[in-house]
Design a protein around this nucleic acid. Structure first.
Lengths: 217, 217, 217, 217
DNA sequence: AATGAATGAGCTTTCATTCAT
DNA sequence: GATGAATGAAAGCTCATTCAT
């Protein structure tokens, strides 16, 4: 799965030309936003944690909202990551690849992503319901693209007969529920380092593909 | 499935002896909290919407936090509803019942619950990550009870051979992901009244039981 | 000195026809006023401590100020006590009495009074600088009367040659400083039950009469 | 007695590096605190009188209490002034000095001090009974030091036979009562500019040394 | 680029007081 | 006479933002 992380890492480091103070501000903001939520975080608190004067924050970000967007907008693209990467979907053309391997790739990749970006993801997810601007950006630029691509893939695998004939929306919803359920559970609710992660992924994939029904031929 | 809603409805209406002003406050608070989030909601806004003086809020709820808890604490019990109802799990003793019918009952029941309590549920879910007290109450009093009961059910159906042999935690996680994914999608993300709900439930249940794999015997 | 306390006690119990609740309110108010000061005391706190509803306070005392005055106005008369008592100054006609015995009587009597009314006295003294009404009442009705009487006594003893020839104001000020210094020190600053009170009174009287100078004939 | 005021004046002006606004705030606060008392003074009133925004007060003093302490804590040291000054007590080594000249020096010095700092002293004295923190600081840092020094002086003069043999505590209490009585009367209760101050001081000192007894050799 | 004093609107909360019951 | 729900003004304090340096 290395192709993902390589590509992602280059994406992640798109931030250039930031002064050290600016980096401190971003870092502090991420930490406090994720801990207390955007509205409950004061700029003075961020300034203190970042070790800068309050004015400095507003020199770089016109408003507190701007600071939030500066943090979270780039995250959106990264969160949706694999779904918009051309290379990922080229695996469809590879005769050895399957729906299962596609979803598994996405799952493993998102697990790793979240492990590195838990705070960012928490902010994004929990502020989206309240920040119209965030929601709009997310829906327009991110979800829509991912939906189109994933739908194409599902259409393809349905046609191939690899997955069951059913409205794509339902299949997509079920697949995403399973993937998101897996990562949310393991990264946010029940972080257990003693767990064998690979086995858990295997189980999730098995349930995704075959369901809970015991009687299999 | 009527037994659920009947039982639930009686549970829901446990609020007694509230003055009209108090009801207005609660109603206004729920509406604004769910729209803007707890921290971004001002008590003066609530007072205005409720048609009471600001002091009146604090006569009934010592702090803004107390108001939140007064709203959300009872909701917790209701949200987890079916999992703690004795009657629900007695269906296990009924030879005609199955894991499928149990999960379907929960799913349908929660869909209906959310349709009536969308705002409350939104507040609860989105504030829990920030309100230690909420998290604590939820984990201690709610989740733990539900987990124990669901685990027992899963153990039972595994033994019966109705569902696949696998760690209960994984089965539970997968089942809940599927149920929660379904309700969140249909109640929060993509409310589409033209959709045939029963068919969607059928599809979700089919995917839960048999997965996406097309090739079935 | 019993004549004082007897007379005083009858004065003290001038409160008649108070309901129990009213007594509770007064008692609670005295306690909290003396502990935190008038302005820093809330009526709700008084109500709680008195075990009555907030409204009840305002049924008996139109405002918080009125409550203060109801407490403190009668105290003023009591505080100044001995100076306005006819009997006390009749001792002047008694050939066995002297300035020394007069001041000693006052001192002993005020010590006893304060021991019983520490809280009331504290309120009166510390609120007077801020409550114009109190100050006015105190100056007009109390101080002036006491001044006239004391001045008369001092004039008498000066004439008799028992005390030094000096402006009465200075003698009065010095005498009162000594008496007040004694009672404030022993009742408010340095309450020490192990101290032999009578001896301390003797010392104070000796200093008052003869000063600190060592060489006495 | 000039050595006192010189030394004191330098002590008084220890406030440095305050912005003009900050000075305004302190000045306004002193004025209103002394007029109405701490608890009855609102920060908005102070802000208005100081000509600053209310927020500005809280930028410099975290709480209203802090503002009080910022005003009054330095005053404590100044109030007790002469008792902690080394030079004052060196007069004991000067063969021409006496208890009388020591007390007279303190009295004159404190009269002058109060003439300049009436408001500060009023605040300090009247808030101390309610502000635990003030009381603590006063007792620990101020009173104790003054007591030790004064006790030493009294011991010395007792041994010399200049003042009467009696427990130091009683002598101290009497001396302080006389001094405090003098300054309180003349600076707070009965400010009369037509009075010949020096003569009044002479009278007080005479009474302190020889008492009221008429028969002097 | 960075500061931090200053702002004034707005926050949560408390308060003395009123009034229907 | 007593209650306690209700009030609205004002309290202390915080906030995002501005601006002179």
């Amino acid at each position: 799965m290395d192709e993902f992380s390589t590509i992602l890492d280059t994406l992640i480091d798109e931030q250039e030309s930031l002064t050290q103070k600016q980096r401190n501000i971003l870092e502090a903001a991420v930490e406090i936003f994720s801990e207390k939520g955007f509205a409950a975080t004061s700029t003075s608190e961020i300034a203190k944690k970042a070790g800068v004067a309050e004015g400095t924050i507003f020199r770089h970000y016109r408003t507190k909202q701007d600071l939030l967007l500066a943090i979270v907008a780039p995250t959106m693209a990264k969160l949706i990551g694999p779904f918009v990467l051309k290379d990922v979907f080229n695996i469809m053309d590879n005769p050895n690849h399957s729906y299962e391997s596609l979803v598994r790739a996405i799952l493993v990749n998102r697990l790793e992503f979240l492990r590195k970006n838990r705070m960012l993801a928490k902010i994004l997810i929990l502020e989206m319901p309240y920040q119209e601007e965030l929601k709009r950006q997310f829906m327009e630029h991110i979800i829509e693209k991912a939906r189109v691509r994933l739908e194409k893939a599902i259409g393809h695998y349905k046609q191939e007969g690899e997955i069951v004939e059913m409205p794509s929306q339902s299949l997509m919803r079920f697949t995403l529920s399973t993937v998101i359920g897996h990562v949310v559970f393991h990264e946010f609710l029940f972080r257990d380092p003693s767990l064998n992660e690979e086995e858990e992924v295997d189980r999730t994939m098995s349930l995704l593909m075959y369901g809970v029904k015991g009687k299999r031929e």
